[in-house]
Design a protein around this nucleic acid. Structure first.
Lengths: 341, 341
DNA sequence: TTGAAAGCGCTAACAA
DNA sequence: TTGTTAGCGCTTTCAA
């Protein structure tokens, strides 16, 4: 883990410019109290010597850090290949690119990951943390608090409302989806929920229930899934067994919806004429299923962007309010209206 | 960018344990020359005080760094949502998880990104670099060399052979694909290439050409694409116009192949009976196209893993050899044999 | 085996 | 507006 190259120091810059190190340091951080002439001289020296400050020394002396971490609570680094997470990362990076913050990626839940994260947070290398996809009660949140680092949540944890978070309007999205199914004339509407130990799962379920209640429809056709494709398939099979009269289903994630489409096909039900399907997330594959999937789109990349912006604001001493991002219905064939029957 | 929490220092640990700071430091780095008794005392003190070493101070004093960066040469952080890149990240993380190295993500090509990367590399915060998806001549490679940091390439740059790299056997994969098309009896075989300013693009094209040459078939049905879905669609349309007799096509990426399938359908050609299609990469969506896409699978996650392993080895003073990872044919309906006609 | 002392390269009081 | 002086918390000689 060695580094070799000859480092140009601030002292050398100062010497070259014929000023004190403090003066050079002031110029570097464009602090006041430096004459125009010296400022210029230092700038020139920096350019000539190709000086780049040693970030480590700087961090040590100033007790500040130029990097933030994104911690995703998952067993396996494979989460970062998840379309959803990947898009969040993209959003975050696109904002950080405009700042001087670097992004470090960690998984928070694996046996070793937990320890590593704690070490990372307490080793004073990090200015702040973004936390994602929390199921249930999260020790990680406490971890960050212990380290007294600013934390921004992506999605809300189930057990408490954090000070800073960005979330999608899951409940509203579920309402949109369910209203759409009602709107195209379905009356025996079911749902396959996500994990009920995640806020996104419960919120979408609530949105579903309340919409049916308002419409005076029976909200009891419910099977619980786990957000996975396989889980969706199993859940759909179970749903057909328990409620064969079902003519529409709101599935709490596209991944599950894909599994559900498979189960429907296997059961000889055609989509959407026998059973209309609406998913949630609008993952890229949703356009390519058979039939293409009607779904609720959430602005995932914006979620990442807003998380990064919020953290940045907190690091600058501001106190931003939590943010709920809107969702919208993306209309495709899997829940087309009567005209398409 | 402030941090607040009270830091426990090594001095406090030493005091608590009743030893000198040097002794405590030795225990921390399990260096020799510490009596068993003291070692134990220090260990206890560390546990009791919940001491976590300040990584920044450590890095400054030891001139070592515990983080490596993955730089992807792209204009836009959106590359990190690319399935391919995301899988590489996963592979890298899965290896780094076992070490004490953290991963920092950067895009290398955006106007600002280039500067940021240079700063990052020269600011002595980083132990080493992994570089990905280089088109043509890469200033970034020079950058890292200037900083005298170990660099591992993922994929080979076009203009020079780096000391350390991991690549997939693109040429061999293209050969597999083309041989398969010949094997199912096609004779008027075309290709849609990738970007010819990327090594992967040229290598796959070469594999295609040489296989047709060996088989005595005409290798001149060629349209150049750009690895994108839209590009694939355009290329296929052009191919059909210029070589309407084409009965098979090797498409240098699945993304392009998806576009090509669209163009074929639009042109009323059925796949595979009129035109057989083989892609490259085996992205998740390949299983879900109509018809499902025969393709060349490369061990993307392994690519990431091996990059991380290689960098780790270099950081430990070893000199690993470049690595070429094998590819294999994944057989699906888009290039089924005659029996399926 | 031990500890004292001297930095790592920078920032931040403080005094001038 | 300047420069001097202490550190930041750790590692690493060096002499004991």
């Amino acid at each position: 883990m060695e580094s070799h190259s000859r480092q140009v120091t601030l002292d050398e810059v100062a010497a070259r410019a014929g000023v004190s190190r403090s003066a050079a340091s002031r110029v570097l951080n464009d602090a006041p109290h430096v004459s125009k002439a010296k400022r210029e001289a230092v700038r020139r020296a920096i350019a000539e010597l190709g000086y780049v400050p040693n970030a480590t020394a700087r961090a040590l002396a100033s007790r500040q850090s130029g990097s933030v971490v994104l911690a995703v609570s998952a067993e396996d680094p494979a989460v970062f290949a998840d379309q959803f997470v990947a898009e969040v990362v993209v959003g975050i990076l696109s904002v950080l690119e405009e700042t001087d913050l670097e992004l470090t990626l960690v998984t928070a839940t694996s046996s070793r990951g937990q320890q590593r994260l704690e070490k990372l947070l307490r080793s004073r290398t990090t200015a702040g943390v973004m936390l994602m996809s929390m199921h249930g009660d999260e020790p990680i949140a406490r971890l960050a608090e212990d380290a007294e680092l600013p934390v921004v949540f992506g999605g809300q944890p189930l057990t408490f409302e954090p000070r800073y978070y960005v979330d999608a309007d899951n409940r509203g999205g579920a309402r949109l989806a369910t209203e759409h199914l009602i709107g195209i004339g379905r009356t025996r509407i079911a749902t396959i929920t996500g994990r009920m130990d995640e806020a996104a799962g419960t919120a979408r379920y609530k949105g579903f229930q309340e919409t049916l209640a308002v419409a005076g429809l029976d909200p009891r056709r419910v099977v619980h899934g786990d957000f996975s494709e396989d889980g969706g398939q199993r859940a759909m099979t179970e749903l057909l067994a328990r409620h064969p009269e079902t003519d529409a289903v709101f599935v709490a994630s596209d991944q599950m919806a894909i599994g559900a489409l498979g189960a429907l096909t296997a059961a000889g039900r055609s989509v959407p004429s026998d059973v209309a399907v609406v998913g949630f997330n609008d993952i890229p594959m949703a356009r390519h299923t058979t039939p293409p999937l009607t779904t609720i789109s959430q602005p995932i990349r914006s979620l990442g962007r807003e998380m990064a912006r919020m953290l940045h604001a907190v690091l600058n001493g501001e106190h931003p309010s939590p943010l709920i991002l809107p969702t919208r219905l993306v209309f495709r064939d899997s829940a087309a209206g009567p005209s398409c029957r």
